[in-house]
Protein backbone atom coordinates (compact mmCIF):
# COMPACT_ATOMS: atom_id res chain seq x y z
CA UNK A 1 0.00 0.00 0.00
CA UNK A 2 1.53 3.32 -1.07
CA UNK A 3 0.45 6.87 -0.36
CA UNK A 4 -1.12 7.31 -3.81
CA UNK A 5 -3.24 4.19 -3.35
CA UNK A 6 -4.33 5.29 0.15
CA UNK A 7 -5.10 8.82 -1.07
CA UNK A 8 -7.08 7.33 -3.95
CA UNK A 9 -9.15 5.09 -1.69
CA UNK A 10 -9.78 7.94 0.79
CA UNK A 11 -10.86 10.22 -2.09
CA UNK A 12 -13.18 7.52 -3.36
CA UNK A 13 -14.56 7.03 0.16
CA UNK A 14 -15.06 10.79 0.49
CA UNK A 15 -17.01 10.89 -2.78
CA UNK A 16 -19.54 8.28 -1.63
CA UNK A 17 -19.80 9.94 1.79
CA UNK A 18 -20.46 13.35 0.19
CA UNK A 19 -23.23 11.83 -1.91
CA UNK A 20 -24.74 9.90 1.02
CA UNK A 21 -24.52 13.06 3.13
CA UNK A 22 -26.34 15.07 0.47
CA UNK A 23 -29.09 12.53 -0.04
CA UNK A 24 -29.51 11.56 3.62
CA UNK A 25 -29.43 15.04 5.18
CA UNK A 26 -31.18 17.30 2.67
CA UNK A 27 -33.30 14.36 1.40
CA UNK A 28 -32.64 15.42 -2.17
CA UNK A 29 -30.95 13.79 -5.16
CA UNK A 30 -31.37 16.78 -7.47
CA UNK A 31 -28.65 16.71 -10.13
CA UNK A 32 -27.67 13.13 -9.30
CA UNK A 33 -27.91 10.56 -12.08
CA UNK A 34 -29.58 7.33 -10.94
CA UNK A 35 -28.16 5.66 -14.05
CA UNK A 36 -24.59 6.36 -12.92
CA UNK A 37 -25.39 5.08 -9.42
CA UNK A 38 -26.86 1.87 -10.86
CA UNK A 39 -23.79 1.41 -13.04
CA UNK A 40 -21.51 1.86 -10.02
CA UNK A 41 -23.53 -0.67 -7.99
CA UNK A 42 -23.03 -3.11 -10.89
CA UNK A 43 -19.31 -2.21 -11.05
CA UNK A 44 -18.80 -3.10 -7.38
CA UNK A 45 -21.02 -6.19 -7.56
CA UNK A 46 -18.96 -7.60 -10.44
CA UNK A 47 -15.59 -6.43 -9.15
CA UNK A 48 -15.88 -7.72 -5.58
CA UNK A 49 -17.05 -11.24 -6.36
CA UNK A 50 -13.91 -12.43 -4.54
CA UNK A 51 -14.89 -10.73 -1.29
CA UNK A 52 -15.87 -14.09 0.22
CA UNK A 53 -13.25 -16.29 -1.44
CA UNK A 54 -10.03 -14.23 -1.33
CA UNK A 55 -9.15 -12.44 1.91
CA UNK A 56 -6.52 -9.78 1.22
CA UNK A 57 -6.68 -7.66 4.40
CA UNK A 58 -9.19 -6.23 6.85
CA UNK A 59 -8.84 -2.85 5.16
CA UNK A 60 -9.55 -4.36 1.73
CA UNK A 61 -12.63 -6.23 2.93
CA UNK A 62 -14.00 -3.29 4.93
CA UNK A 63 -13.60 -0.90 2.00
CA UNK A 64 -15.31 -3.36 -0.36
CA UNK A 65 -18.25 -3.64 2.04
CA UNK A 66 -18.47 0.16 2.32
CA UNK A 67 -18.48 0.65 -1.46
CA UNK A 68 -21.01 -2.15 -1.99
CA UNK A 69 -23.24 -0.94 0.83
CA UNK A 70 -23.11 2.74 -0.11
CA UNK A 71 -23.69 2.25 -3.83
CA UNK A 72 -26.70 -0.04 -3.33
CA UNK A 73 -28.17 2.15 -0.60
CA UNK A 74 -27.84 5.25 -2.80
CA UNK A 75 -29.71 3.42 -5.57
CA UNK A 76 -32.35 2.37 -3.03
CA UNK A 77 -32.69 5.95 -1.72
CA UNK A 78 -33.22 7.43 -5.19
CA UNK A 79 -35.60 4.71 -6.34
CA UNK A 80 -37.66 3.99 -3.22
CA UNK A 81 -37.30 6.65 -0.51
CA UNK A 82 -40.63 8.45 -0.44
CA UNK A 83 -39.07 11.93 -0.15
CA UNK A 84 -35.80 11.54 -2.07
CA UNK A 85 -37.32 9.90 -5.13
CA UNK A 86 -39.51 12.98 -5.70
CA UNK A 87 -36.38 15.04 -6.35
CA UNK A 88 -35.10 12.59 -8.96
CA UNK A 89 -35.38 14.12 -12.43
CA UNK A 90 -36.05 11.05 -14.59
CA UNK A 91 -36.96 13.17 -17.61
CA UNK A 92 -33.41 14.57 -17.67
CA UNK A 93 -31.57 11.41 -16.64
CA UNK A 94 -32.25 9.64 -19.91
CA UNK A 95 -28.84 8.19 -20.82
CA UNK A 96 -29.43 4.64 -22.15
CA UNK A 97 -26.90 3.03 -19.80
CA UNK A 98 -27.51 -0.51 -21.06
CA UNK A 99 -25.80 0.78 -24.25
CA UNK A 100 -22.73 1.10 -22.04
CA UNK A 101 -23.06 -2.32 -20.40
CA UNK A 102 -23.31 -4.35 -23.60
CA UNK A 103 -20.06 -3.15 -25.28
CA UNK A 104 -18.23 -3.46 -21.94
CA UNK A 105 -19.38 -7.07 -21.54
CA UNK A 106 -18.50 -7.90 -25.16
CA UNK A 107 -15.06 -6.30 -24.76
CA UNK A 108 -14.50 -8.20 -21.50
CA UNK A 109 -15.33 -11.45 -23.29
CA UNK A 110 -12.60 -10.77 -25.86
CA UNK A 111 -9.99 -8.73 -23.95
CA UNK A 112 -9.10 -10.09 -20.49
CA UNK A 113 -6.16 -11.61 -18.61
CA UNK A 114 -7.76 -15.07 -18.09
CA UNK A 115 -10.96 -16.56 -19.48
CA UNK A 116 -12.64 -17.46 -16.19
CA UNK A 117 -16.01 -16.23 -14.94
CA UNK A 118 -14.50 -14.15 -12.12
CA UNK A 119 -11.79 -12.67 -14.34
CA UNK A 120 -14.22 -11.75 -17.13
CA UNK A 121 -16.62 -10.17 -14.61
CA UNK A 122 -13.74 -8.32 -13.00
CA UNK A 123 -12.59 -7.03 -16.41
CA UNK A 124 -16.18 -6.06 -17.24
CA UNK A 125 -16.29 -4.02 -14.02
CA UNK A 126 -13.13 -2.15 -15.07
CA UNK A 127 -14.51 -1.25 -18.49
CA UNK A 128 -17.90 -0.33 -17.04
CA UNK A 129 -16.41 1.90 -14.36
CA UNK A 130 -14.47 3.78 -17.03
CA UNK A 131 -17.73 4.93 -18.67
CA UNK A 132 -20.08 4.85 -15.66
CA UNK A 133 -19.79 8.61 -15.12
CA UNK A 134 -21.20 9.47 -18.58
CA UNK A 135 -24.89 9.59 -17.56
CA UNK A 136 -23.92 11.89 -14.66
CA UNK A 137 -21.86 14.22 -16.87
CA UNK A 138 -24.67 14.40 -19.44
CA UNK A 139 -27.14 15.21 -16.65
CA UNK A 140 -24.86 17.94 -15.29
CA UNK A 141 -24.74 19.57 -18.72
CA UNK A 142 -28.54 19.49 -18.92
CA UNK A 143 -29.31 20.78 -15.45
CA UNK A 144 -27.91 24.30 -15.44
CA UNK A 145 -27.51 24.64 -11.69
CA UNK A 146 -24.93 22.27 -10.27
CA UNK A 147 -25.07 22.38 -6.49
CA UNK A 148 -21.80 22.28 -4.58
CA UNK A 149 -22.21 18.79 -3.13
CA UNK A 150 -22.91 17.23 -6.53
CA UNK A 151 -19.93 19.08 -8.03
CA UNK A 152 -17.69 17.90 -5.18
CA UNK A 153 -19.00 14.36 -5.55
CA UNK A 154 -18.09 14.22 -9.26
CA UNK A 155 -14.73 15.86 -8.64
CA UNK A 156 -13.73 13.38 -5.90
CA UNK A 157 -15.01 10.45 -7.96
CA UNK A 158 -12.84 11.53 -10.89
CA UNK A 159 -9.81 12.33 -8.73
CA UNK A 160 -9.67 8.89 -7.05
CA UNK A 161 -8.83 7.00 -10.24
CA UNK A 162 -6.37 9.74 -11.18
CA UNK A 163 -4.55 9.04 -7.90
CA UNK A 164 -4.65 5.33 -8.72
CA UNK A 165 -2.67 6.10 -11.88
CA UNK A 166 0.16 7.47 -9.70
CA UNK A 167 -0.18 4.32 -7.58
CA UNK A 168 0.26 2.14 -10.71
CA UNK A 169 3.31 4.15 -11.82
CA UNK A 170 4.82 3.79 -8.33
CA UNK A 171 4.15 0.02 -8.23
CA UNK A 172 5.46 -0.45 -11.77
CA UNK A 173 8.82 0.95 -10.69
CA UNK A 174 8.96 -0.72 -7.29
CA UNK A 175 7.45 -4.17 -7.88
CA UNK A 176 8.76 -6.67 -10.45
CA UNK A 177 6.15 -8.15 -12.79
CA UNK A 178 3.58 -5.51 -11.84
CA UNK A 179 2.08 -5.02 -15.31
CA UNK A 180 -1.69 -4.74 -15.78
CA UNK A 181 -2.37 -3.07 -19.12
CA UNK A 182 -6.14 -3.57 -18.97
CA UNK A 183 -6.43 -1.88 -15.58
CA UNK A 184 -4.12 0.93 -16.61
CA UNK A 185 -5.77 1.74 -19.92
CA UNK A 186 -9.27 1.60 -18.39
CA UNK A 187 -8.10 3.86 -15.56
CA UNK A 188 -6.57 6.41 -17.91
CA UNK A 189 -9.66 6.47 -20.15
CA UNK A 190 -11.84 6.89 -17.05
CA UNK A 191 -9.79 9.84 -15.80
CA UNK A 192 -9.65 11.48 -19.24
CA UNK A 193 -13.46 11.46 -19.41
CA UNK A 194 -13.41 13.89 -16.48
CA UNK A 195 -10.89 16.20 -18.16
CA UNK A 196 -13.39 18.84 -19.27
CA UNK A 197 -15.29 18.62 -15.98
CA UNK A 198 -12.03 19.16 -14.06
CA UNK A 199 -11.28 22.16 -16.26
CA UNK A 200 -14.64 23.86 -15.60
CA UNK A 201 -14.54 22.80 -11.94
CA UNK A 202 -11.17 24.52 -11.39
CA UNK A 203 -12.23 27.54 -13.42
CA UNK A 204 -15.32 28.00 -11.25
CA UNK A 205 -13.24 27.48 -8.11
CA UNK A 206 -10.54 29.94 -9.27
CA UNK A 207 -13.02 32.65 -10.30
CA UNK A 208 -15.20 31.84 -7.32
CA UNK A 209 -18.27 31.52 -9.54
CA UNK A 210 -20.98 28.86 -9.72
CA UNK A 211 -19.94 25.73 -11.61
CA UNK A 212 -21.60 25.62 -15.03
CA UNK A 213 -20.77 23.19 -17.84
CA UNK A 214 -21.24 24.47 -21.40
CA UNK A 215 -24.36 23.08 -23.05
Amino acid sequence: MNIFRLAGDMTHLASVLVLLLKIHTIKSCAGVSLKTQELYALVFATRYLDIVTDFISVYNTVMKLIFLGSSFSIVWYIRHHRVVRRSYDKDQDTFRHYLLMIPCMLLALFVHEKFTFKEVMWTFSLYLEAVAILPQLVLLQRTRNIDNLTGQYVFLLGAYRGLYIFNWIYRYFTEPHFVHWITWIAGVVQTLLYADFFYYYFESWKNNVRLQLPA
Binding site: I56, K64, W122, T183
Partner: peptide, 10 residues
Protein backbone atom coordinates in the same frame (compact mmCIF):
# COMPACT_ATOMS: atom_id res chain seq x y z
CA UNK B 1 0.36 -15.25 -4.00
CA UNK B 2 1.16 -13.52 -7.29
CA UNK B 3 -2.48 -13.91 -8.33
CA UNK B 4 -3.52 -12.31 -5.01
CA UNK B 5 -1.10 -9.49 -5.65
CA UNK B 6 -2.77 -8.53 -8.91
CA UNK B 7 -6.18 -8.30 -7.20
CA UNK B 8 -5.21 -6.45 -4.06
CA UNK B 9 -6.63 -3.13 -5.22
CA UNK B 10 -10.19 -1.80 -4.97
Amino acid sequence: CYQKNSKDEL
